[in-house]
């Protein structure tokens, strides 16, 4: 095939979609539409707040984010809360992953007992609301086993998310073709070696996207521990409001802080995903 042939288009061009479709599909119209809707909602809430006589005091918010005095720059109490939230989430996530891996491996073990225990655990956790689970951990298991509110919240979050994480891990492990097991078995690898060197490294790329979702979910659901007054972002927000009565400003601020954190997480992981794609 010569280059002249490939460059020359002989067929008639295809018909364009109808004009109305083209207008709605264009970027400019979408952006304009987006801003109209968003500003409509923002204006609506502002007017609503105005009509109930709400006294906006945004100028008082920055002091909770940071202070800048002669002694220097200092992060505010909201960042202390954020730090606690991240610490709580990280601890819970690590525990949840370990527990989730155990549950997933039990379920995949092929042992009747293992599968039964795993399914029992999953059904139990998945069918109890997170808030009730937290109360169980704090008011029931806490006194029995003698752990404090912080431990109760970490354990509760870890157990709740381990059920979800174990399903993600199981799906990722099952997504690796059966032939990989056979290849590894045929060169004499044990089950543990096969998991460690062959199966798990390959399942990471299947697990990363849903795991990101799970981390974001965990950071958000960690807010629930504010009901047992564990010091974290949401609790700090409640405390500030009880001191200042600025519920609108503070809740907006807290929401934005959560959003920024989870967005950073998502962006970071999508970068990781691309990297794994390139490697394979």
């Amino acid at each position: 095939m010569s280059s002249a042939q490939t460059n020359e288009i002989k067929g008639a061009p295809l018909r364009k979609p109808p004009a109305i479709t083209q207008i709605f599909a264009s970027k400019l119209v979408s952006i304009v539409l987006y801003f109209v809707i968003v500003s409509g909602i923002a204006y609506g809430s502002f007017v609503g707040a105005q009509s109930m006589g709400y006294n906006w005091q945004w100028y008082r918010v920055p002091q909770f984010l940071y202070t800048y005095t002669e002694e220097g720059f200092e992060l505010g109490v909201i960042f202390y809360g954020l730090q606690q939230t991240l610490l709580l989430s990280l601890t819970a996530f690590i525990l949840a992953t370990v527990l989730g891996l155990i549950v997933a491996l039990l379920r995949l073990s092929g042992l009747v007992v293992g599968t039964a225990v795993a399914i029992g655990f999953l059904e139990l956790i998945r069918n109890i609301p997170l808030l009730v689970l937290l109360y169980l951990f704090y008011y029931v298991l806490g006194p029995i086993f003698g752990f404090d509110r912080y431990t109760a919240s970490v354990l509760c979050l870890a157990v709740f998310h381990s059920a979800l994480i174990s399903e993600i891990l199981r799906a990722g492990i099952n997504a690796v073709p059966q032939g990989q097991w056979e290849g590894a078995t045929s060169i004499g690898m044990t089950k543990a070696q096969t998991y460690r060197y062959i199966i798990l490294p390959q399942s990471i790329k299947f697990m990363l996207p849903p795991m990101t979702g799970e981390v974001v979910h965990l950071v958000k659901s960690s807010a629930i521990v504010s009901v047992i007054a564990v010091a974290e972002l949401t609790t700090i927000g409640r405390n500030i409001i009880s001191d200042t009565y600025m519920s609108f400003e503070i809740w907006f601020t807290i929401a934005i802080v959560y959003m920024v954190v989870t967005l950073i997480l998502s962006v970071g992981v999508s970068y990781l995903e691309k990297k794994y794609e390139v490697d394979n």
Binding site: G179, Q180, E182, G183, I187, I198, N280
Partner: peptide, 20 residues
């Protein structure tokens, strides 16, 4: 079986190489 498998090389229809 593990010792035996080391004595037995197996070549599969679908290769079953480790892609990573």
């Amino acid at each position: 079986m593990r010792n035996l498998r080391q004595e037995l090389g197996m070549v599969f229809q679908q290769f079953n190489l480790f892609p990573h």
